[in-house]
Design a binder for these strands. Sequence first.
DNA 1: CACAATCATTTTGTACACTAACCAATGGTG
DNA 2: CACCATTGGTTAGTGTACAAAATGATTGTG
Lengths: 168, 168
Amino acid sequence: MSEVGAAQAADQPEISFDGDPLALERQVCFALAVASRSVIALYRPLLEPLGLTHPQYLVMLALWQRTPRSVKELSAVLQLDAGTLSPLLKRLEAAGLLVRQRDAGDERALAVTLTERGTALREQALRIPEAVVRRLGMSLAELQHLHESLTRVIAAANAGDPDSGERP
Amino acid sequence: MSEVGAAQAADQPEISFDGDPLALERQVCFALAVASRSVIALYRPLLEPLGLTHPQYLVMLALWQRTPRSVKELSAVLQLDAGTLSPLLKRLEAAGLLVRQRDAGDERALAVTLTERGTALREQALRIPEAVVRRLGMSLAELQHLHESLTRVIAAANAGDPDSGERP
DNA sequence: CACAATCATTTTGTACACTAACCAATGGTG
DNA sequence: CACCATTGGTTAGTGTACAAAATGATTGTG
């Protein structure tokens, strides 16, 4: 028997059980991180046949809605750093799903355009949302509700930021 | 300015709101990922004076609740891979916040124990939760509610998994 | 038109996160 | 007690994330 995980001692004179503001189980940031990882893990087996990671899937969602798009535009829509997108887009290009070429009108910008193969992949992606919801086994109403809550948190978190919101 | 997000039609009470099941703005996984990153970004400036990243902060929360703990135990509580924790714990050890030594009772297991410095750091961490809530500017009730929603998603996502739940 | 400021993107460096392969200690079982 | 599947950790490899510096194109101002 290991001695590491011995039961919590009864003699905790200072701050106590549920009055602890640092209690792990009560941190929203912890719940967010775990929920995010857990749900993304659900996508992994579904995305693997398409050869996509979850961030790559999100980029494809953005491009299926509109193409071509610049890195800056993708960065804004996905709320992802341009420095993160750069290598990610290169991998998608290497996979033959898109091409990266300079914008004719503005040589600074990149025009990220889906290839035929990239566009066609959407057909297979169409099954994914339903499969995830089924695996989750939660009601659509509750998921919708969660989505609204998350949208409010995102707005609140971005409210005091240099980017994102705050228009004077 | 681009006209990307043309306004949503009036009201569709049932399924298929704007028709596209792959619409980025409707994906719960996307909202989760963005919310998680946005909220964690809020912690960055607060954690920087303590010399901690957010994952490291979560490990410290777990250890402030109980120490020593094995890697396996931390892995279970934090829902984090042991392969992720291993280098993370080494960095915390290098920072002088904990020590990693083999468990006397079971040489396979590691006893992760807070140092005095690691224990003392809790005092400064105590201010963080309130500061984050203030920056978010959301009511405690709504945060509490979100936490409950997230807990249900986590449970649902882990329900069909090899790990976590499901004991026949 | 020169040229500094700005802009879009890329690169570099550090730190997660997960899979898979690996290794040493452990604890049945015959 | 010798065999060997299991267990607890570590390592390697790939792919995000983010900050900060670097690169190259574009624009505003004189």
